[in-house]
Amino acid sequence: MRKHFSGPLGKSVVILGVAYLLLEFGIAYIPPLFGVDSGPIPDSVLLQYMVTVAIGILLWVSFNETLWEEFKAPLHAAMVEPRQRRTRVALIVLVPVLVGLMTFNSVRPSIAAPPSLRSIHPAPPGQIDFQGRSMELAGVENPLRSVGSPEEHYLEGRRVYYQNCLPCHGDGLAGRGHYAQGFNPGPASFQDVGTIAQLTESYVFWRVAKGGPGLPNEGAPWNSAMPAWEDFLTEDEIWSVILFMYEQAGHEPRTWEEEGEEH
């Protein structure tokens, strides 16, 4: 058995196998051991990673002639040598069957909606109509940061959050409210570095005010259950809840780049 895995071909198979295990199960189950949140990766990403690894392996075995010959030798042997007839027959049967299965799998009709490209942070409009009046988004910061006491805004934001947002986005702002399981896509986790920490406050304002119905085309499919909060909250309430969210999640909002500044 050992000798099968000592040549470059054997090593390649082992590397591919280990990479597969790491990607499919490792990513999902190892980080939680260290207290880091994780989950299984989708097939599309798995495929992408595996192809990259496979290309890397092919490059490695063809670095120099000796390695390349050693890599090809077992394959060559399996194709021509009389005593490897069984392997050959097995390969000739298995490979087409595998390809057939894959083809069947990909064309099999299914009731599931097609996997779709949903941009989580679609491009925001430059201005929106907020409660019937036009409002600029570009360059806007939370107006509450410059007026009144931060403490008060925070408390107000907390009230708004607990009255309206809690059922879905949850107590810990991690998108794990009581109703969260019912939604697909699920409510956003504000703890995540990929959500509000990446966005300007005016972007968050836009998303809160317009909700799922206000998503532009590339945010499709339209199954976000987020209501358009402009119908229920005032402008100041929305700004205060945004303030609360950043404060509570411990993130800083993304700031606007200053006009004309060069880096």
Binding site: I27, G39, P40, I41, P42, D43, G186, G194
Partner: peptide, 13 residues
């Protein structure tokens, strides 16, 4: 898959 990940945004990757 989205349900398993908890969103189109992978928590770790």
């Amino acid at each position: 898959e989205i349900a398993a990940m908890g969103g189109t945004h992978h928590p770790f990757l």
